[in-house]
């Protein structure tokens, strides 16, 4: 319990010595898996619990400081107030910036859990891990975030182990995986990344978010809230770039994109985007199926 968990725990070691395999696959997936020449060898998993908080004070004077003292990411954009001096608490400038420290911490948590799962899979001689499920959950009110990655380790019947010894992985299982392979794609790994964009509102954004006219004297109706819309676009684009950087020329299949927004304090919010999918590589030529017959079911 005192040692740092860089190895498979004792209980898992015991589990893998037992004769029966465990598989998290549903029965239809299990059947499809046997049909395509994959033998399940065990249910593998990895964890990483991280302390999780939102740091950086709410004061305008501390804008742009990172708790790590490092630099921001690629994306940064700023806005200037068009009004001149109004009052001391007037937000004279605003900024959107990518919070690389959050993205890196997420990547570290996810990556560590993933690597531990791979270690388990390697220790039982797996060629690949299919039907991956990953969850990130906060445990109660403990200020911690748990990364949990699990899946079913498989061997390719009569097939070679992966060239670098590192099992390939995919979120897909069963018929979906069978169809992917039939379509000429080999799963390489999963790809996942988070982007985190902090939005420090400047006066115009603040007024528009509150539905107020921002030009003194002139009522301006229905203007676009440029700063927030840009943050939303950037969150998605940055996440896509991060995942693209993991592809190394392969393709991303079956991506899922989740965007969340949270207000940390007044005029200070975070837009976060999680993008995950299957990194796949083409191994044979494009060979389209015949057009399927449309069907109508009677039940």
């Amino acid at each position: 319990m005192t040692s740092v968990p860089d190895d498979v725990p004792e209980a898992a070691g015991r589990r893998f010595q037992s004769g029966a395999f465990t598989s998290g696959l549903t029965v239809p997936d299990f059947a499809a898996c046997l049909q395509m020449g994959l033998e399940p060898v065990g249910y593998v998993q990895g964890f990483c619990v991280m302390q999780w908080g939102w740091y950086g004070a709410g004061s305008p004077y501390l804008r742009g400081t990172t708790p790590y003292g490092g630099t921001h990411g690629q994306y940064s954009e700023s806005w200037r107030c068009p009004h001149g001096y109004v009052s001391a608490d007037h937000r004279t400038w605003g900024q959107n910036y990518e919070q690389a420290w959050v993205e890196n911490a997420w990547g570290q948590g996810f990556g560590t859990a993933y690597t531990r799962m791979i270690e388990e899979a390697t220790s039982i001689g797996a060629h690949g891990v299919i039907g991956l499920v990953d969850t990130t959950a906060s445990l109660g009110e403990m200020g911690v975030l748990e990364f949990h990655v699990r899946g079913t380790a498989v061997k390719v019947s009569g097939g070679p182990p992966p060239p670098d010894g590192r099992p390939w992985t995919t979120y897909l299982a069963g018929q979906r995986l069978a169809k992917l392979v039939e379509a000429g794609y080999m799963p390489i790994s999963i790809a996942a990344a988070v982007s985190s964009i902090r939005v420090w509102a400047y006066c115009v954004t603040e007024y528009l978010m509150e539905g107020r006219a921002y030009s003194w004297g002139a009522q301006v109706n229905g203007a676009e809230i440029d700063q927030v819309a840009k943050a939303h676009m950037a969150a998605r684009q940055v996440a896509r770039e991060h995942v693209r950087a993991q592809l190394h020329g392969d393709s991303l299949h079956g991506a899922a994109i989740v965007v969340s927004e949270r207000e940390l304090s007044e005029g200070d919010q975070v837009v976060e985007c999680t993008l995950r999918g299957n990194r796949v590589r083409r191994f044979k030529d494009f060979d389209p199926l015949a057009r399927p017959r449309p069907t109508l079911r009677l039940s």
């Binding site: 897909l172 979906r176 169809k179 992917l180 379509a183 000429g184 896509r240 995942v243 693209r244 592809l247 020329g249 392969d250 393709s251 991303l252 299949h253 079956g254 991506a255 899922a256 994109i257 999918g277 590589r281 083409r282 191994f283 044979k284 030529d285």
Partner: peptide
């Protein structure tokens, strides 16, 4: 790999 092809991203299912 001899079947490189362009690198694509998609949220389509198989």
């Amino acid at each position: 790999g001899s079947f490189g092809g362009p690198s694509t991203t998609s949220d389509l299912s198989i």
